[in-house]
Each structure stands twice: as C-alpha cells, then as structure tokens.
C-alpha cells in the first residue's frame, strides 16, 4: 500500500443492535488487504470496545479510520457527557454503565483497559459536557 485508505463511519447511538458495524467493516477490509490475522484481531477488539463505549455512554459518535502500510489509526469521537476522571475510568472494573447496559453483557469496567491492552498507542481526551475522543494506533509491522 503506497497510499493510505481513509474511512469514515457514523456510529448510531439509538440502536444497540447496530453497535459494532463499523468495527466489523474495518475487520473485513483488513482481511481483504491480507493483514496478519493476529493484528486484525487486536484492531477489531480495540475499535469494537471504543464503538460500544460511544453507543452506551454518548449516544453514538463518529469513527475515522486510516490504514497505511505501517499502521491502522482509529479516532472515535463523541459528544457525550465526557469523563471527569480519566485515571479512574482506566481502572479495570470501574464503570458508570447503567443497569440496562450491564444486562446486555457490557459495562464490566473493562472497555478502556481493553482498548489500551490491544493497541500499540492509545490516547484519550475528554471534556466534561463536551465529549470524548479516543485515538487507537496499531502497528502493522513488527
């Protein structure tokens, strides 16, 4: 790949059933590009967790994905309530998810730690009342 591939997704916030479609599409494209399956899995999981977060905490958002020969960069942006204490939110097991979300199998407080675990570079910026932006980078080469 000489040029980068840029993708844009709207993450709908009103339909939990649709959450994960953007991640699924990125997984499909990386598979078509012949990327190592172990790396695809890391990208898919990290993006899926971020996508789920945008749906359950922020009524959706957007995902910008850029794939070049060296890395996959994913920026997921929402205009949700923001995170008052990022350090606390990064702790395993800490969650502000509602009971309804927990009943759906999420909200165990593993989302952000999982994103960090599966990405090579992870950045998060959040302003209370404005929203949250998560940047995930996964290297395609060892």
């Amino acid at each position: 790949m000489d040029n980068s591939l840029k993708l844009h997704y709207e993450i709908p916030g009103d339909d939990f059933a649709l959450a994960g479609e953007a991640s699924s599409n990125v997984k499909k494209i990386l598979t078509q590009l012949g990327v190592n399956p172990a790396i695809i899995k890391r990208v898919s999981i990290a993006m899926y967790e971020a996508e789920i977060n945008a749906v359950i905490h922020a009524n959706g958002g957007t995902a910008e994905v850029e794939i070049d020969s060296n890395k996959v960069t994913i920026i997921i942006k929402d205009e949700g309530p923001g995170i008052p204490d990022i350090e606390l939110a990064m702790q395993e097991g800490y969650s502000t998810a509602s009971e309804a979300v927990r009943e759906l199998g999420f909200g165990a407080g593993m989302g952000l730690p999982n994103i960090k675990k599966y990405s090579d570079n992870f950045e998060i910026e959040s302003i209370v009342g404005k929203g949250t932006t998560v940047k995930i980078e996964v290297w395609l080469k060892p």
């Binding site: 939990f16 059933a17 994960g20 997984k27 899995k41 898919s44 999981i45 899926y48 199998g105 999420f106």
Partner: peptide
C-alpha cells in the same frame, strides 16, 4: 473480550446481537 483468547467455543445465556459481534471480533 478480556479473557476469551484463542477460544473456539463460547457458551452463553445472553441473547442479543452483541454476542455475535463479540464472537466475530474474537
């Protein structure tokens, strides 16, 4: 997602589309 690495089978009592999505990603 945290601990289900290299698993072939998921047994679950949860029924919603995210179960399928999780299996897909994993």
């Amino acid at each position: 997602i945290s601990y289900g690495h290299e698993k072939d089978v998921l047994l679950t009592g949860l029924v919603n589309p995210q179960v399928i999505r999780t299996a897909e990603m994993m």
